[in-house]
Design a protein around this nucleic acid. Sequence first.
DNA 1: TAAAGTAGCGAAAACGGTTGCGTAAATAAA
DNA 2: TTTATTTACGCAACCGTTTTCGCTACTTTA
Lengths: 341, 341
Amino acid sequence: MDKLTIKTLAKELQLSVSTISKALRDSHEISAATKRKVLALAEQLNYSPNPYASSLRKRKSKTIGVVIPEVVNSFFSQAINGIESVAKEKGYHVLIYLTHENLDNEKAILKDFESGRVDGVLLSASRETINSTHISGLIKKDVPVIFFDRVFDDVETVKVITNDFESAYTATKHLITSGCKNPHFLSIISNLNIISNRIDGYKKALQEHHIKFSNSNIINCTTNWEHNYKLLLKKMQSSKKPDGILCSIENLSVLIYQVCEDLNIKIPDDLQIVSFSNLDTASFLNPPLTTVTQPAYEIGSVAAATLVKALEKKNFIIPNENIVIPSVLIKRKSTKNKILS
Amino acid sequence: MDKLTIKTLAKELQLSVSTISKALRDSHEISAATKRKVLALAEQLNYSPNPYASSLRKRKSKTIGVVIPEVVNSFFSQAINGIESVAKEKGYHVLIYLTHENLDNEKAILKDFESGRVDGVLLSASRETINSTHISGLIKKDVPVIFFDRVFDDVETVKVITNDFESAYTATKHLITSGCKNPHFLSIISNLNIISNRIDGYKKALQEHHIKFSNSNIINCTTNWEHNYKLLLKKMQSSKKPDGILCSIENLSVLIYQVCEDLNIKIPDDLQIVSFSNLDTASFLNPPLTTVTQPAYEIGSVAAATLVKALEKKNFIIPNENIVIPSVLIKRKSTKNKILS
DNA sequence: TAAAGTAGCGAAAACGGTTGCGTAAATAAA
DNA sequence: TTTATTTACGCAACCGTTTTCGCTACTTTA
């Protein structure tokens, strides 16, 4: 079978390729009758235009690149869901890349994007990322980059985020009013805004309740599960062990549950826990986990919609703006919900 | 700034475009000295070749299309993880498409692939899919399609699956030997192989233990959460209510936990549950959920590796073969683990 | 020394659409 | 009827690479 191109149609209908092309794109230069004939034949032969030829000529790929740390994660998979829904609606295709929380991977991916493979980028930085210098190349090539969730302030673009500071503040306050005297902050070492913002919110709550903060209140995990486990095990057996934990990373909440089980620490009696988490199963954990639930789907869809809108404009300028979609604290049984006066 | 193409390099170095192209691709026709110069300039100018021009010319996109029902799902996100890892290693890009369990969406996506957008396809069918007729167009255009997990026997290609029949058999047997007299099968209406295979495995276990099977033993859910909830609620209050459930769909396990909580049904005393599931949180549910855990990552990576291998061959032929990677039954507290003689 | 082979590079034709411009015929305006 | 305008289409350049083929100069072999 011969390859089926626009030329096939042209020959068959005794028309020029340009006429076919215009007819297929519903140009006003072409008569309705001709359009009908062309569409009919295209349909009959099951013709579909080569996207790469089109992309080459139009300098548009109708493709967006999504760069995230990981996919096995409720937050990110929900965000993808949101992204995909608007991409599909707007006729865009989505390329997915995982950094696995590694900065070099992130750099390599963004570098590849300088080839023009994608029209725009949706990026959630890895935990190793310390600034946004590595995206300057993309900006220079007029490839818009929109950040979501894990953003950097030093780059002038749209950042779709949640209210990390307030959420951490509220969550910590919830721990304290539920009786915690020594709430800790469980997280990862990172230069990420979301982390520092959450820490700040946490600190503010401590301050308001006259609980003095020390650096040992912050438990920093790594990517090494074994190491993290031992770290937490040790922490939970120390003399000044926490009676409350604000967990900043969804995956770590499972870890702290594990440690509590192994050490026979009762939640919430011995330790209260609230975690930033989008787990569907939060309410069915033992005990049900109090969560700061982020609007992951919305963050993804808003980021994608903003990007697409920019791409469709003639001379798009990405405003330097934060779009904040608030998280919600869902109180469950891993905290006591006491009301203190 | 002028656009940076192979011509820019050619002009700068007083060489022809073909020489540049060959140098960049490390052709033996080009001297080492020239290659060095070209590479150096390319590096210096931060040149990266246009992938669409290359794809057009080479008729290869180095891109694979991944079509799955949903992404907010431990199994599929782990599978993506596996797919991405081999794609990255082999220099392939991955386009993600979600069917949302809808056959029309699936058809539309596969239809789009006939344009040559992707070199190959990794497909896990939607629950509505009843056969594989809609992929014949792709096959005709020599776009290899490899199925994973949710496969169809009627298409001659590689199918990467797990041992659904045996797993369901083993899981059901586990329920029965743990004391269940009336184990039910919780699932969805679908023509999918995985469903019928699991039902067959379930039936075989019943038969071996002389438990008579009736159609009412199979609880069929839809995509409507509310409807499913009511259905289960009713089922669990009926006179012949189940004392054991084999849940065939990960998402439904949360539902049954919810119903049990609302009806104050004790797990595992009143109802034992085992679910096909890849939830990280399974061991921390209340009670910990006995699961048939599928090798999701491996299924994804094997499927991707097989596809890539086929794509790299000159005249690839996709063998008609099943690659079976076994699941493992992990017994936890949602079943009793009694040992009956 | 002549014939044959090889190394290194360039010209040009693809790959499959898109688009600015030109033009002939048809229609409208003068 | 003449002129201006519109309609509908074709021509050909172009998007940025890749690849075949041909050419020259140089090296090897008989």
